[in-house]
Each structure stands twice: as C-alpha cells, then as structure tokens.
C-alpha cells in the first residue's frame, strides 16, 4: 500500500498513516510519500510511540511495517 501525502503539512501525513494502518495485515508494509520537513521526525516518532517498525526513511519516502 502507498500513501501519497506530498504537499500535506504536519500532522496530516501521520494522521493518514494511522488511519490507513488498520487495513494493513500484520507483517505487511506501507509506503508513505511525504515532503513536509516535520514528517522526517514525526513518522519515526509515531513508529516508536506505537511500537511499529520503521523499515526505511529516505528521500521523502518512508516504509513502515505493521508489527501488532
């Protein structure tokens, strides 16, 4: 699954991620495209607070795996 959050400002990319997450099977990944500078800190912070795995984060592209 890919979420295109380019052009959105914080906290929208993180809200979109949280709202899409229940549709994801455990073990699957989701890709978020986000160019808001806050996303670089906030998507990893969301993963830490929610105990989910940040697989990668580079070039405005974030991959998150659902662990629970």
């Amino acid at each position: 699954m890919t979420l295109d959050c380019r052009g959105m400002l914080c906290p929208l990319p993180v809200i979109k991620l949280a709202q899409a997450f229940p549709d994801l099977a455990i073990g699957d990944t989701i890709t978020i495209l986000a160019d808001d500078p806050a996303a670089a800190t906030d998507i990893p912070a969301w993963c830490r607070m929610r105990s989910q795995e940040l697989v990668s984060a580079d070039n405005h592209q974030y991959v998150v795996r659902r662990l629970s």
Binding site: C10, P11, V14, A38, A40, T41, D42, P44, A45, W46, M49
Partner: peptide, 9 residues
C-alpha cells in the same frame, strides 16, 4: 525537537 527525535507536531 528534531535533534532529539521526538514528536514535533
């Protein structure tokens, strides 16, 4: 906040 890696919004 960014340097600490904590939630900024």
């Amino acid at each position: 906040l960014a340097a600490m890696g904590v939630l900024t919004h």
